[in-house]
Structure formats: C-alpha cells, structure tokens
Amino acid sequence: MNRRIGTAMALAGSVLLSSQAFAADVMISGEYSTQGRNVEGEIYKGIASVVQTGSHVDIVWVIGGHTYQGTGDIDGNTVTVDWGEHYPVVYLVKSDGELHGTWADGLAFDKMTPK
C-alpha cells in the first residue's frame, strides 16, 4: 500500500514539474505592437513591453497617449494579467510569438505582435 502512495506522489510531482518547466519554456519578454477593439467597439493601436521572470510577467501598454500596467503569470500557453480592472486580460501565446487576448470579461480583444 505504501508503495502505491509513493508512486502516486512521484507521478504528481513529475506532472507539477512538467507544467512549471513548460511555463519556463514560454519566453515572451520583449517589445510588441498591440492592437485591438475596446468594449465600445473602437479600434486601438499602441505598443507594449513585457518583462518575464520565470512564470511571472510585468506588462506596460502605451495606447493613445495613456499608459496601463499589469502583472500576471504564465500557465502553459495562457498568460493572465491583472491590470487593475475587474476582469484580467487573458492571452494565449501563439506558436508565432503573438499573444491573442481578451479583456472586459471577453467583450474586448487585444493582439500583441512581437517587434
């Protein structure tokens, strides 16, 4: 019985390490062009800077003369960013390095393209 528990714990540990390793494999630090559509349906464009430390990210967006900041975490290919609003920005990291995201509870969208 103890052997089965030990095996189960070893498997759970390896799954946890695998997911942490995957997050570390996703490298998104850099400068981006950003564009999207806000909840009013208006299209916007700007720039963004991402600083990644392990699975943590800090993002600064400059859009229309306004600066927004957020912090978040990478889980697999999903980046969830708290930027001070009720709902976070949730991005998917695409294979080409783009980040496709939604904000305002899915009512608005953003696409970040590496420069």
Rank of each mutant, 00 (worst) to 15 (best):
N2G: 06
N2H: 11
R3E: 14
I5M: 13
I5S: 14
G6H: 11
T7V: 11
M9I: 12
A10N: 03
L11K: 12
A12V: 04
A12K: 04
V15T: 06
L16A: 11
S18H: 04
S19Y: 10
S19C: 12
Q20K: 09
A21P: 02
A23N: 07
A23G: 03
A23K: 03
A24Y: 10
D25K: 14
V26G: 00
I28E: 05
I28D: 06
S29R: 04
S29G: 06
E31V: 04
E31R: 14
S33G: 15
Q35C: 13
R37D: 14
R37P: 09
R37W: 13
R37Y: 13
V39N: 05
E40H: 09
E40W: 12
G41R: 02
I43C: 13
I43F: 15
G46Y: 11
G46P: 01
I47W: 09
V50Y: 00
V51E: 14
V51H: 01
Q52E: 03
Q52C: 00
T53Y: 09
G54S: 00
H56D: 14
H56C: 08
V57S: 03
V57T: 01
V57E: 06
V57Q: 06
D58C: 01
I59P: 05
I59G: 03
W61V: 04
V62C: 07
V62I: 14
I63Q: 00
G64S: 02
H66C: 13
T67Q: 10
T67P: 03
T67W: 11
T67N: 05
T71A: 09
G72F: 06
G72I: 00
D73S: 12
D73H: 10
D75K: 12
D75M: 13
N77C: 07
T78Y: 10
T78W: 08
V81C: 03
W83H: 10
W83Q: 05
G84M: 01
E85D: 15
E85L: 14
E85R: 09
P88K: 07
V89C: 03
V89G: 01
V90I: 12
V90R: 01
Y91K: 05
V93D: 00
K94S: 11
K94R: 15
S95Y: 02
S95F: 07
D96R: 06
G97F: 05
E98V: 04
L99G: 02
L99M: 11
L99R: 06
L99Y: 03
H100S: 12
H100R: 12
G101D: 09
G101N: 05
W103K: 04
L107H: 09
A108V: 07
F109N: 14
F109V: 14
K111Q: 15
K111H: 11
M112V: 05
P114D: 02
